[in-house]
Amino acid sequence: MHGPASSGWLLVALCAATGAYCLARMRSGAEGQRSAAGGEALMGFGMAAMAVPAAVFTPPSWAWPVYAAVFGAAGVHALWAARAGAHHLHHLVGAAAMVYMSLVMAGSPAHAHGRGGSGVPLLTGALLLYFAGYVLLTGVRLVPVAAVAGSGGSAGWGDRPELARACRLSMGIAMVAMLLTL
């Protein structure tokens, strides 16, 4: 998952900032916001940890199965939560992509970060198509966002739909970048 160090650090910063914002969104007054924000925070911090350049830190061999287990549990939670809303299906696909990347990294020889060719091309391609489409759709939806109804323009950080969409857009872009280097 690791390419050049400079782009790796940019990806770490983007994902960590997104994860931090999602933690702030967990303080929202809306239950739906809090629920989605928790999964997105986990995804942001997990992606940040996976994107740390290998020249700086190579995770021990036991870390990849732990990532797979954590995101597998997040996927089960997203599947359960999908009964209430379609957005959780996206969380399920994201968690499945993280499990897939973790398993590929665990199975790669000496954890060959960024050397490519270690994943299943058809599955990697399908995930790339999904996340590229998600990025385009989220980008289009980001443009016309209006102020939160009844907020009088003073919505808290956790209740700003345009920031939540920008957060999701940045994580989608990061996922595309990580899948491209797989």
Rank of each mutant, 00 (worst) to 15 (best):
S35P: 05
A37P: 02
G39E: 00
G39R: 06
G39T: 01
G39V: 02
M43P: 02
M43K: 04
M43R: 03
G44V: 03
G44H: 08
A49K: 02
M50R: 01
A51Y: 10
P53S: 14
A54M: 15
F57R: 15
P59Q: 10
P59T: 11
W64Y: 13
P65N: 11
Y67V: 12
A69S: 14
V70I: 15
V70T: 13
V70K: 04
F71H: 03
F71C: 03
F71M: 02
A73P: 09
A73I: 01
A74S: 12
A74K: 05
G75H: 06
H77I: 15
H77F: 14
A81L: 13
A84T: 12
G85W: 01
A86S: 13
L89K: 06
L89N: 05
H90G: 03
H90W: 12
V93T: 02
V93F: 02
G94S: 01
A96H: 01
A96P: 02
M98G: 00
Y100P: 08
Y100H: 07
M101W: 00
L103Q: 01
V104E: 01
G107W: 13
G107T: 02
A110H: 08
A112T: 10
A112Q: 09
H113C: 13
H113A: 14
H113L: 14
G114L: 03
G117A: 08
G117T: 04
S118A: 12
L122A: 13
T124S: 09
T124M: 07
G125T: 11
A126N: 08
A126W: 10
L127H: 06
L128V: 11
L128A: 09
L129F: 15
L129M: 11
F131S: 03
A132S: 11
G133C: 06
V135W: 01
L136Q: 03
L136K: 10
L137Q: 07
T138I: 05
G139K: 10
V140Q: 06
V140M: 06
R141H: 06
L142N: 06
A146S: 14
A146E: 15
A147I: 03
G153Y: 08
G153C: 09
A155N: 05
A155E: 05
G156E: 04
W157I: 14
W157R: 14
D159Y: 08
R160E: 03
R160I: 07
E162S: 15
L163V: 07
A164D: 09
A164K: 05
A164I: 04
R165S: 13
A166F: 07
L169H: 08
G172K: 06
A174S: 09
M175K: 04
M175H: 08
M175C: 10
V176Q: 08
V176W: 07
V176E: 04
A177R: 09
A177W: 06
M178T: 08
L179S: 08
